[in-house]
């Protein structure tokens, strides 16, 4: 169970005179084991920042995040603990092309987790890598290619496979399908749904696409200008919202 308690994040600009830009304000939410929490909202509303805070990639200005009642700060106290934490909590980014180092082959990219976590995982376990590639339905022929030679959908599968290598339990999906065309989008969403069943994963699904959110989510929350304006069971929030903004957003989306 992942709990987010009154998380606030401010960004500062300026060299001498600091100016404060609040990005997230007092966000509290809970993600149950094996569930999918869909975080919706317009671009720039702070969805991605919240995802990063949940994984400890960005430190919150105030508030705290708990994994099974253990504060995330506990996991960040030493490098060893952090690596331990990273293995179990992974993220899939929006833009797979930019996330994969362009000078490495897919084979090298899949070895990265083993290089980073060598003391825990040891040498690359190719049987397991092949199993993971099968799980994301990628063929082994791609191993010697470079990222630029693969399609966006394939690259996103590589990213997911790379996360799966470490046997994670929680995945943040930061608009994983935003850069893909609609048919590939649907394939990927189905794959993610399938993986959730087989791997017993918990998802935080960040998206501005309500159809995908409706399909994926068990719970949902709406972010508007850094505030979590509405949250609850997905069918309730995404079908019959109570707040005017959410209603407008959904109406606009469905009309489009």
């Amino acid at each position: 169970m992942i709990k987010c308690q009154a998380v606030t994040k401010n960004f500062y600009s300026g060299f001498f005179k600091k100016r404060c830009h609040p990005v997230l304000q007092a966000i509290s939410l809970t993600i149950a084991e094996g569930h999918t929490y869909a975080l919706c909202g317009a671009s720039g509303s702070g969805k991605s920042t919240l995802g990063r805070i949940l994984l400890g990639l960005v430190a919150p200005s105030a508030g705290n995040v708990f994994y099974d009642d253990v504060s995330i700060q506990h996991w960040m106290t030493s490098r060893r603990k952090e690596k331990d934490f990273r293995q179990r909590n992974q993220i899939v980014f929006q833009n797979p092309q930019a996330t994969l180092y362009p000078d490495f082959t897919i084979r090298q990219l899949l070895e990265e987790p083993y290089r980073i976590h060598s003391y825990l995982l040891g040498a690359p376990d190719w049987d397991w890598i092949e199993v993971c590639l099968k799980k994301v339905k990628l063929s082994l022929d791609l191993l010697n290619r470079y990222p630029e030679q693969l399609s966006g959908g394939q690259l996103q599968r590589v990213c997911i496979a790379r996360s799966l290598l470490m046997r994670p339990s929680f995945l943040v999906l930061d608009e994983p399908t935003a850069m893909l065309d609609p048919t590939v989008q649907m394939q990927l969403i189905c794959l993610l749904k399938e993986l959730q069943q087989t791997e017993k994963l918990t998802y935080l699904f960040i998206s501005h696409d309500l159809n995908l959110a409706r399909y994926m989510a068990d719970e949902a929350g709406f972010i508007y200008q850094g505030r979590l304006v509405e949250q609850g069971p997905a069918e309730l929030v995404l079908q019959q919202p109570q707040i005017t903004f959410t209603r407008q957003f959904i109406r606009a989306f469905d009309a489009f």
Partner: peptide, 22 residues
């Protein structure tokens, strides 16, 4: 500021590793 750096951090890589290898 490239995205792959954040990707590496999310995988668990530290400063020394990223600087040295990337």
């Amino acid at each position: 500021s490239e995205h792959f750096i954040e990707g590496l951090r999310a995988l668990g890589a530290g400063n020394a590793f990223i600087l040295q290898h990337y």
